[in-house]
Write a protein that binds this DNA or RNA. Structure first.
Lengths: 322, 322
DNA sequence: TTGAAAGCGCTAACAT
DNA sequence: ATGTTAGCGCTTTCAA
């Protein structure tokens, strides 16, 4: 910057003004400065800028796994909003590991991000309190924070969606409906089980519930066990997109009626088409990012907790008769 | 840091030593410092550290679109390697826009990333030369840089893969094979067309080639046109994952034999299963990231250009008779 | 083993 | 419209 200033024959501060688009610079002077910048290949040192001004133009995003289409789409939506506000996105995958989640948040805070969007893996987020009090806003997405933390959340109507699926299957004559879900320690899995159970009422049967990390072998074992029961299920509700796909493979032709939570590409091209309760990960990302930017721009109102709706998309598998 | 120092009764520099794990600090002193850090909730200001030391512990990744499974998986692989080296990942989607690509690279350089991994959207990368000369290494992935830039690249054997697909279809008796590809200005699309043409030889027919951004309406129009020819194609080669899926929808039951470039989830569950020439985006990300870190660690050998192999996965659609 | 002082590149605050 | 000065929080260099 010093070099640019002397090349353009102006003071340091004038270069700073041009670089930051601040008003009060003669157009001719600005032009000379820009030429010098071009000539010298100057690029502003963001670290120095952040250090001095305290402003970052960067937000941090912690998700579970970018390679998961759900989070990939969510990431893209967050990125688009972020870009619209002239900011960059730092992001990382926690792989469902609370330690990694905390490391990522720590690394983001050390880089003085202006705000955080977090899909939490852990159940205790008290480590975030100092940052929140220091003025770094955070929005929790898909799952709420641990107890005692009053932050904005953007969640899906998990229980309602599960209820939708169950009522759809009941309406097609099913009374033996099984639930395949992720580990119950995961918030969304627990909420979906809750909605499933509530909608089934007295038809709920403990033996038709299996919850675990969806490995092919594990899901196959669960499916085999259930199909071998005296009164096997005639319908299946799968608690997330990965589970739906894993279950379809495990079923291998023995397909009972099936409704899955989460939409996925090609669900319409399978035979039969897969009926799903669809969330909108892009909307989730957009809503969370817009909320974060409102906070970053000084909105100090009470914390907000939008609940995003889901919709059932019938495609065939959920309309098979009992 | 100053507060921590006075709380622990030591000098600033000692705190710095502890924070950075530098040797030559009495264990007892270090412990006192750590307690003070814990007590005050201190977290190191990365911007100040970068400003002074010049080191960043951050790398930048420019891809086309995180929401695309191919790039999502590649991102994750890059992230994993990056994390292994104790670094963070800044990433952004160019949406196939050269201007955006350049903006992203500029933003990363302003943040003084230690290195860049770029899936280029543009055809001119001379803007990168100052950064490269300033010592920021770059690795180009999936597509090479514009002319005149001597950087490492990690590419897939696009032409070879297309040849593999064509020979597979020829082997099943097809002589009228159509090619649906992305815009020819995209490197991979051009290379795949090249391989397709070379493998077909005199059987190549201009009328059986359509290249464009794969919108549902556009692909449908192409497919309809080709199927209406006097001598319609009996087999189809689709030039990337998105195209394969879009074409499957457009075909809607009128499926000729089909081999697609790029594997995709559920390709095995469709009926018939979709035969593909599979790339390995995770390997691509890993190879590129490892190469970048070697450069960041001072390897100044001649630029490298690994060509990643592909493999044909027969699943049914590519084995349909002519 | 520990500390003091200088300065990284920039912007805020205050001149001119 | 432009310039001067101080200092952001850290690491480097050198000294004790």
């Amino acid at each position: 910057m010093k070099d640019v200033a002397s090349a353009a024959g102006v003071a340091l501060k004038t270069v700073s003004r041009v670089v930051n688009g601040e008003p009060g610079v003669h157009p001719g002077t600005a032009e000379r400065v820009r030429e010098a910048i071009e000539l010298l290949g100057y690029s502003r040192n963001e670290s120095a800028s952040v250090l001095r001004s305290g402003r970052t133009a960067t937000v941090g995003l912690v998700i579970e796994d970018v390679a998961d289409p759900f989070y990939a789409v969510l990431s893209r939506a967050v990125e688009d909003v972020t870009t619209g506000y002239g900011c960059m996105l730092l992001s990382g995958s926690s792989s469902e590991d609370p330690v990694r989640e905390r490391e990522l948040v720590g690394a983001f805070c050390a880089r003085r991000v202006g705000g955080l969007i977090v899909v939490p893996a852990g159940a205790d987020h008290s480590y975030l309190r100092p940052e929140l009090e220091a003025g770094t806003p955070a929005v929790f997405v898909d799952r709420p924070p641990g107890p005692g933390l009053d932050v904005d959340t953007v969640l899906t109507d998990n229980a309602g969606g599960a209820g939708l699926a169950v009522r759809h299957l009941l309406g097609h004559g099913h009374t033996r409906i099984a639930f395949l879900g992720d580990e119950p320690s995961i918030f969304t899995a627990a909420r979906r089980l809750h909605g499933f159970r509530a909608a089934l009422g007295h038809l709920f049967d403990e033996r038709l519930v299996a919850m675990r990390t969806p490995t092919p072998a594990g899901v196959r074992a669960d499916v085999d066990r259930m199909l071998a029961l005296d009164a096997p299920p005639t319908a299946l509700f799968t608690g997330n997109g990965r589970l739906t796909v894993t279950a379809l493979r495990a079923l291998a032709g023995r397909l009972p009626a099936l409704v899955g939570f989460d939409d996925f590409e090609l669900a319409d091209l399978l035979v039969p088409g897969v009926t799903v309760v669809a969330q909108d990960p892009a909307q989730m990302g957009r809503v969370a990012a817009e909320l974060l930017f409102r906070r970053m721009h000084g909105d100090t109102g009470p914390s907000e907790h939008p609940l995003l709706p889901v919709r059932l998309i019938p495609r065939g598998s959920g309309e098979l008769p009992a």
